[in-house]
Write a protein that binds this DNA or RNA. Structure first.
Lengths: 256, 256
DNA sequence: CCAAAAGTGTTTGTTTTACACCCATGG
DNA sequence: CCATGGGTGTAAAACAAACACTTTTGG
């Protein structure tokens, strides 16, 4: 198998979204979206923040590489993982041609406390991003667009919450992502009609008002409108086969 | 700039869609979708049909590489070109790890007659595809899904027609792609409301019935619902900066 | 009993769908 | 003058948005 002329190098990166921990214990505060970034430890772009990622190993699938680097960076398993776009402008990385297959992921807010965060890995608020290396600012902007668009026709919001959640919490996610207030009554009806929610029968106690019902996401009715029964190639999958184990090990890789 | 361990090779391929020439001179027959394929001239997959494409040159952008290989294969310039997905399963190509960035394109039926077609390049009907190399059958199926989905919320159908077209021709494209009959009256209204069509004032003579108006696509109002004014990274562009010149030269490259 | 959010009902306006019907042309 | 699609009108149904109102808890 001949290895011909000079080739571009292949990297895999992921835009990871999670909800900020509620500032108020009552869940009243509107949460906001956060993204973990790693500090670059070498040139080019030394010291600036970048998306977690790494070079693609020869024997690893793209999806697996995305899930792995995500786990190595944050210590989390993605609840949702989907390929976003492949960025390959010849000059997006100075010195060397790098093509990046970029994924986007949603992780549970439950587990975010468990997430890695040190000098070289930090979570940034969606609208308070630092100076970013390469074209990563544009990539995050694009991922945000995709998240917002997809939220409106697909029930992925639950992937940002825990196992069970109240209707208000789910609405809070939509409001935070879409950056607009939603009518509680109509939102409830829309969600109930979608068939993706199951009432657990339990309700959340300890509020200073009527206790809300707790729902669970129904994986059976998830992608809802998949036209073909035997689906085609890319499994724009929700729940991903989790990586080996949340082990915050060799994080902060350097890759455009 | 260190070139480390073994890497995957990067290819760019394109699923090209065009309409079959009308069998009836009156435009009554429903057209169907066709895809050009190239015969593989070497192993792996020798003799089988595959998507046009080639290895990514180090200094060429992904978009440019897609447009170029498209032109080299068919002799056409794409009217619409958009990145589809990146396929990179470790075993999708026997022997060597190949990652393919796949694009999809629409070309004018006007120019299809000008298209290359010989022993090693042939156009196949959407539902009469031959035995395909690698995972290309799944890729085409996925591209079809994308085309169908995108047609319903975006006015790209005109990219399959000529400069001017009648409302019935445009509807014919939609019907051919979506594989279902559409109400002529409602279709007309939806299209007129979209604001993407301009009445040329001329009408098509020579039919055995009332002469229909000829429309032109209005590039000003094309992508319509782009939320952000200064758009983010990937320009899911319509009309593409055409490659140098339609020169049917070195076609039929070999790439997964 | 009061505040505060959960949850239900109702009204109104818009969009989608189905289909009836007139119009203009070639034969 | 008739067959054939081009083009317009319209009523019913489905959907979306706005908002009033009742319910259930903690304090």
């Amino acid at each position: 198998m001949p290895q011909h002329d000079a080739q571009a190098r292949l990297a895999v990166s992921t835009v990871i979204f999670a909800l900020s921990p509620e500032t108020d214990g009552d869940g009243v505060e509107r949460p906001s979206l956060r993204v973990p970034l790693v500090r670059r430890l070498r040139e080019p772009g030394l010291g600036r923040w970048a998306l977690p990622g790494g070079w693609l190993p020869v024997h690893e699938s793209l999806d697996a590489a995305a899930a792995r680097t995500l786990n190595e960076t944050t210590g989390l398993a993605p609840r949702y993982l989907e390929q976003l776009y492949t960025f390959g402008d010849p000059d997006r990385s100075p010195g060397e041609r790098v093509v990046s297959v970029v994924y986007w992921a949603l992780v549970h807010s439950d587990e975010v406390e468990r997430a890695v965060s040190d000098e070289n890995v930090r979570w940034f608020d969606e609208d308070d991003l630092p100076d970013l290396a390469f074209d990563h600012a544009a990539i995050i902007e694009y991922a945000l667009r995709r998240l917002r668009t997809k939220l409106e026709y697909s029930g992925i919001a639950h992937a940002l919450l825990g196992e069970t959640f109240t209707m208000a919490e789910l609405r809070g996610v939509h409001e935070a992502v879409l950056r607009k207030r939603l009518d509680a009554a109509n939102f409830r009806r829309t969600m109930e009609a979608s068939g993706t929610l199951v009432d657990t029968g339990e309700r959340l106690a300890g509020t200073r008002h009527r206790p809300p019902a707790l729902y669970r996401f129904d994986p059976a009715h998830s992608p809802v409108a998949s036209p073909s029964p035997a689906s085609a190639a890319p499994q724009h999958a929700a729940s991903v086969t989790a990586p080996p184990a949340p082990r915050p090990g060799t994080h902060s890789k350097d890759t455009p």
